[in-house]
């Protein structure tokens, strides 16, 4: 059982998928000799050759669009977009084509592609390298949106995404890429693409989030435990389709919920979860829903980014507000 960081686990999953399935191709900018700007595709060119690991011209729209053509022809392309700030150009291809090819041809043509892109702030990156734009993708019918928060989940979810018969946007939190190292099972086991992961069980309050902020959720939960408050921590991981059941079941138990994400507040995907709680979850609620998120501002450059990111302190404060209600 090798120890791996998230980015190494991504690399293992890519290699495993390529080894298991000749249809799997990697394409993107600098994914070949360079192994990707974060080294997620390190060694794959040497191992699988230039017909399966393709360095593309610097053209994000073409990368996404070429994947649509490849996928319709039966390949399983896995594209890398270097940073989320550069991935927005691909939305035309994802929204107008990848996500609707199956539907608009009534199943004649399909689009089993994965578009991977790093996301999120916290690594002092340049401008346009720290966005959390998941909500731009979650409102696209026909598209799955996945965001792992640990090496093993990164491995299992990426394998599932590559094997899935429909398009998947796979977001990789940059500040988790090398944050932790854990033993991972590189045995080809995929994880489900429609299930939340309960990272910690508790009866007093539910913390729901995904991606990088799961670290702060866990850290807040530990501090709460020291005070005798047990928080249940849920990593949504697969935003679309949303496993509302797991969240609602948790809140049925705790009656209190703090939703956490790095992306801006208004129209963020947390709002969809809040709507679920205000709908089918309403009668379980003992306190108003709290959201701890990035602000409705441009994600700041590095000097201010720690003030933008949801911190364990902000999460704790929100938990205390929910606990203050009867």
């Amino acid at each position: 059982m090798p120890d791996a960081t998230l980015v190494e686990a991504i690399n293992f999953a890519l290699a495993r998928a390529m080894q298991d399935d000749q249809r799997v191709l990697i394409l993107g900018e600098d994914v070949g000799k360079d192994g990707g700007v974060f080294r997620a595709t390190d060694g794959l060119l040497a191992r699988f050759g230039p017909a399966r690991v393709l360095d593309t011209p610097l053209a994000e729209v073409a990368i996404a669009g070429v994947c649509v053509g490849l996928a319709a022809q039966g390949f399983r392309p896995v594209a890398e977009i270097q940073f989320m700030g550069f991935a927005y150009a691909t939305i035309d291809q994802l929204l107008n084509h990848a996500a609707r090819l199956r539907s608009r041809t009534r199943g004649r043509l399909t689009c089993p592609m994965v578009l991977r892109t790093p996301c999120g702030a916290g690594i002092h990156a340049p401008e346009h390298h720290s966005e959390s734009g998941e909500a731009c993708f979650t409102n696209i019918p026909g598209l799955r949106v996945v965001i792992p928060s640990s090496p093993q989940r990164g491995y299992g979810l990426l394998l599932a995404a590559i094997r899935d018969p429909d398009p998947v946007v796979f977001l990789e939190p940059t500040r988790l890429y090398r944050a932790t190292r854990e033993p991972i099972m590189d045995d080809g086991t995929a994880l489900p693409l429609d299930r939340c992961f309960t990272l910690r069980e508790g009866n007093d309050v539910t913390l729901v989030g995904w991606g990088g902020v799961t670290r702060e959720m866990l850290s807040a939960a530990e501090r709460l435990a020291a005070e005798g408050t047990e928080a249940e921590v849920i990593d949504v991981a697969t935003l679309v389709p949303l496993d509302a059941e797991t969240i609602l079941a948790s809140v049925a138990k705790t009656g209190r919920c703090v939703i956490c994400h790095e992306a801006p507040l208004t129209g963020g995907f947390g709002a969809e979860i809040a709507a679920q709680l205000a709908g089918p979850g309403l009668l379980s609620m003992l306190a108003p829903v709290e959201r701890v998120t990035g602000y409705d501002t441009i994600v700041p450059l590095s000097r201010l980014e720690r003030h933008y990111l949801p911190s364990a302190d902000r999460i704790l404060a929100a938990v205390r507000r929910t606990l203050s209600h009867g």
Binding site: A64, G65, V66, V68, G69, A71, Q73, G74
Partner: peptide
């Protein structure tokens, strides 16, 4: 046009 390129690549 990118789809056509992708099909051609396939």
């Amino acid at each position: 046009v990118p789809h056509a390129a992708g099909i051609a690549l396939a």
